[in-house]
Design a protein around this nucleic acid. Structure first.
Length: 587
RNA sequence: GCGCCCUUAGCUCAGUUGGAUAGAGCAACAGCCUUCUAAGCUGUGGGUCGGCGGUUCGAAUCCGCCAGGGCGCGCCA
């Protein structure tokens, strides 16, 4: 089978020519070619392929870029499929490839079918992607959807790139927030037993959703807990409430189409001695000491007093200050627990870890990366994807939310309003570290400006043509495999070749996006593919020769259907990375 | 006050890990189309890449300082 990423082969060909130039004495031997890039040029006008080889080699070879380029371009011109090679700018070499070469790429797409774009840069390495990890103190709200979708799409992308991915959710069920949850649930329990509880006091979770938990507690325990001192009901109620809310969270995630393979309980990890294990490990490596931190610069916390405490030597691993592991009451800080959690991930075989977190964790990244470096002796790597805010709008007006009043828009509200596929796609139309505007009205609009619609429409349009063709050409094999072996000579128009070139770039895009951990690149790719396909379609309006189905031209029709089939395949492959169902028709 | 992230066309955003004359969609302007296969098409104008320095063949991209916005700043998670 032909190599999916055609630029790999081209790069090898360029390097082979460089080697033979060295052998012929035209270049010094043993040059480092690591920085030689062979890629599509930014501008289509510059040809199909560009390489910076002459410029990169100029310095080590002590030659002028253009001199090297002259010699190299003559050799590249002789390569198979190369129809043009020229030197441009400061020493770029631009290549043009034969139309026939591109037509053959179409067969590569069709033969690979739904597997087109898969690659093996991951080589089966284990990667742990942790995402959502919201506190189990309430239903997921709209902002959680972004992290959920980014994490899920990134996991899909890494799978396509050949990694062994584990999707993980960290349940923060150990801290004081779940104590607050338990007290709030207990209040609702008393309410369910008929007591008038009045206004929910400050410091409790006011959300209506806790009424159900209170009802369920009352149904299970009757009045048995009501008159006990807190110490005797807290554990029971906490566990019950956390379980109930995690069930809600899982349901929210299911509605969004997000499924984690592993749920790790912070509490279970702490109770099993995970923190001691991790801290002892750090102690043994000299990364823990008892010391007193300088007060933070600027405004002091009201109750600041210098206090010796157990510290992690984060400065040794690139952080600004050393970080506390224990609170004043001797219990572990959240950070200590998180070190233990990442230690645990590493022990489970994950050297590569990705945490998808909210932007409010920004100040936390350096210390966690320092900790991962320490706890894995430099063998592990942690990438943190911070997700910026989502601004919910409706027709340009902000949707009102108040966390204090407990009136926030839930994830489920959003999914019910526009559908999971729209939520998923839109959440991926911006880089994770940029704020995103989510406008109910705009995301449902059926227009060029709405990328979900535009991309889905391209897929639906392609599928529609194939359905139509099946009626026009009874008995023809219009499957991808069948069309892969038809005569493609009719594909001559620049618009047709342009669509093929974009599809030929899909494997390269997957590699780059997977390496950079940037699923949003897929959204922009799909929009480009859709634009080229719609453009081709529109050209068929004025130029009948570009219409896909032409009764009097069976061979040409089959060739164009091969193109259409490939567009459907690639669009579907991209949408599946997003966990979005490609639609057969627009409704 | 300190740290992290962000700043690209009037607006919304890309920019392939340092490449060429910085791109796309809206909006604006100028035409076309009014019916086919499915909710239009073509063209034009628009930029100090927040600012100033530095690194080098080459910077939106890397480094330093400054400005503006967001987030965070021991005993919240």
């Amino acid at each position: 089978m032909a190599e999916a990423n055609l630029f790999h082969g081209l790069r090898r060909a360029v390097l082979a020519e460089i080697a033979s130039m060295a052998a012929a004495g035209e270049l010094p031997p043993g040059l480092d070619t690591g920085r030689v890039a062979v890629e599509p040029p930014r501008e289509a006008a510059h040809g199909d392929v560009t390489t910076n080889a002459a410029m990169v080699l100029a310095k080590p070879a002590a030659r002028k870029p253009r001199e090297i380029a002259e010699a190299l371009v003559a050799r590249l011109r002789a390569l198979p499929h190369v129809t043009g090679a020229e030197i441009a700018g400061p020493g770029f070499i631009n290549l043009r490839l034969a139309d026939g070469f591109w037509r053959e790429r179409l067969r590569v797409v069709l033969r690979a079918g739904t597997a087109y774009g898969r690659c093996d840069i991951g080589a089966g390495r284990a990667v742990n992607v942790e995402y959502v990890s919201a506190n189990p103190t309430g239903p997921l709200h709209a902002a959680h959807a972004r992290g959920a979708v980014i994490g899920d799409a990134l996991a899909n992308l890494l799978e396509v790139a050949g990694f062994a991915v584990t999707r993980e959710y960290y349940i923060n069920d150990a801290g004081s927030q779940v104590d607050t949850l338990a007290r709030s649930a207990f209040l609702r329990y008393r309410e369910a037993l008929g007591e008038a509880i009045g206004k929910i006091p400050e410091g409790y979770y006011p959300g209506e959703y806790l009424k159900d938990v209170g009802q369920a507690l009352a149904a299970k325990h009757g009045p048995a807990l009501r008159d006990l001192p807190e110490a005797q009901w807290l554990e029971t109620v906490k566990r019950f409430a956390v379980d109930a809310l995690m069930a809600e969270v899982r349901e929210d995630l299911r509605v969004l189409g997000v499924r984690h393979a592993v749920f790790t309980s912070e509490r279970a990890m702490v109770e099993s001695g995970g923190v001691e294990r991790a801290v002892d490990w750090l102690k043994a490596h000299g990364d823990v000491y008892t010391g007193t931190l300088e007060p933070p610069k600027g405004k002091l916390p009201d109750d600041w007093e210098p206090r010796p405490q157990l510290l992690f030597r984060a400065t040794r691993y690139g952080d600004e200050i050393d970080r506390p592991l224990q609170k004043s009451d001797g219990s572990w800080t959240y950070f200590a627990n998180d070190i233990a959690y990442h230690h645990d991930k590493f022990r489970r075989g994950f050297a590569e870890m990705i945490d998808v977190l909210g932007a409010d964790h920004g100040g936390y990244v350096k210390r966690m990366q320092a900790a991962v470096k320490a706890i894995t002796e430099g063998k592990g790597a942690l990438d943190v994807k911070l997700c910026q805010l989502v601004h919910l709008m409706d027709a340009g007006k902000p949707v009102k939310m108040s966390k204090r009043a407990g009136t926030f828009v839930t994830l489920r509200d959003v999914v019910e309003a526009v559908g999971k596929d729209v939520v998923r796609f839109i959440m991926l139309t911006r880089r994770n570290d940029q704020a995103l505007e989510f406008d109910y009205a705009k995301v449902k609009e059926q227009s060029r400006e709405n990328p979900v619609f535009y991309v889905q429409y391209a897929h639906a349009r392609a599928r529609s043509v194939l359905r139509h063709a099946a009626e026009e050409l009874p008995g023809a094999d219009l499957s991808a495999a069948g069309l892969a072996s038809c005569d493609l000579a009719a594909l001559q128009a620049p618009e047709e070749l342009q669509v093929i070139k974009i599809m030929a770039d899909w494997p390269r895009l997957v590699e780059g996006a997977a390496e950079a951990h940037e699923p949003h690149r897929v959204a922009f790719y799909l929009a480009d593919l859709a634009a080229a396909f719609h453009g081709l379609w529109n050209r068929g309006k004025d130029d009948a020769r570009l219409r896909f189905i032409q009764a009097e031209d069976r061979a040409g029709t089959l060739a164009r259907l091969a193109l259409v089939q490939a567009v459907a395949l690639v669009a579907a492959a991209g949408l599946r990375v997003f966990g979005v169902e490609p639609v057969e028709e627009m409704r």
